[in-house]
Simulated scan of single mutants.
Amino acid sequence: MKRISLKKAAVFIASLLAAVSLWGCSPVATDTMQKADEALEKGDFDSASALYDAAIEEGKQLQACYRGKGIALMGKMEYKDAAEAFEKALESATFVEKNLYHDGMEDDIRRYLASCYIHKGEPEKAVLVYDALIKNDDENITLYMERGTAKAASGDLDSAKLDFDKAINMDRHNYQMILDIAQTFDKYGGREYGVGYLADVRADREDTIDPVLKGRILYFLEDYEGAVNLLSSSAKTDEEAAMITCRCFMALKNMKSAREVLDSMGEKVERSPSLLNLSGNIYFRQKKFKKAAEVFEKAASVASGSTELQDILFNRAVAYEYAGDFAKAKELFTDYLKQYSGDKQAVRELKFLNTR
């Protein structure tokens, strides 16, 4: 079962889709390009990739087409092929495109390329890309955040900290950013760095932090009871507070209380992909696999266009597998991999199911 984040199970993909609108409406875009952009915005990465290939064959707006194809391939988790698409995009800019986008698209493409390098295990290459970008834009806080992530991924945690410190000094009261930094360090083996940042936040201006964000910080610091006490009163009406509270109870292995939090949300649960996904996970933890599969089916039915969709589809297939319905699980993983073909965990699951 995939771990589900407190707020953003697929925020990275959401950022990809948000970026489509920035460049996707070229005044000289072909009908095929527009269809590709529409498929990408819907999260239909497989169709989008095929449509961008068709648009490339038309020979117009090649830089934009290769960029779109790269984003679609990132959505499919095919980072090697995505990197190749972005490299071709950088090679394909025409004089018209350079003037149309004032070279802004090239910087955008380089950032995507750097992200691909990180995902495919070459963070040192990503650092070099960010070095060049920062040389031309040394006041861009996002670039320091991204280079810090690349350095952390390469194992150079002390150097990563220098970049993150720079970002924090540029926006000292951005506590969400500081939590993001802590989570990045945690991901790459430097949890003590992240804990240190958040300890400083709590000692400095804890009273000014939004309660829900403070709850997320407490969750990261594994102060589960503190987060529950803080958010228990708002969990009945605030979806994010409810999710954090549920996750805390789950970490405390108190599934009964976690279920009660969701029950207190009433009909809101049935309309929320996030809450249904969490509900399915509670049933899964309780080894009620058939019930979990039913809930994940509900979540999938309301998750079209949601950033939660990929996690929900994966979790649904796993629930059927654990419920003993191997034929259904195999069918679902086969469909899932059409859209997310680079998901190595799903590939392993399907390989196992093919032996049943």
Score class of each variant (00 low, 15 high):
227 A>K: 07
262 L>Q: 08
203 A>K: 10
214 K>I: 02
264 S>T: 11
238 D>I: 13
235 A>D: 00
224 Y>F: 14
220 F>Y: 14
200 D>H: 14
227 A>P: 05
215 G>C: 01
243 M>F: 10
225 E>P: 00
202 R>S: 12
248 C>V: 09
203 A>V: 11
188 Y>T: 05
216 R>G: 04
232 S>D: 00
221 L>D: 12
218 L>Q: 13
243 M>T: 13
205 R>I: 08
230 L>A: 08
196 G>Y: 00
187 K>A: 14
260 E>V: 06
255 M>H: 14
242 A>Y: 09
265 M>N: 00
247 R>N: 11
250 M>D: 09
241 A>Y: 04
204 D>K: 14
253 K>S: 15
218 L>I: 05
234 S>Y: 03
224 Y>D: 14
235 A>Q: 05
252 L>I: 07
247 R>G: 00
235 A>L: 01
229 N>K: 07
235 A>I: 04
202 R>P: 03
243 M>P: 01
211 P>N: 05
229 N>W: 02
248 C>Y: 05
206 E>R: 06
234 S>C: 02
214 K>L: 10
233 S>V: 04
230 L>P: 01
199 A>I: 15
256 K>T: 12
193 Y>M: 14
199 A>T: 15
213 L>Q: 02
216 R>Y: 06
231 L>C: 04
251 A>I: 11
218 L>A: 08
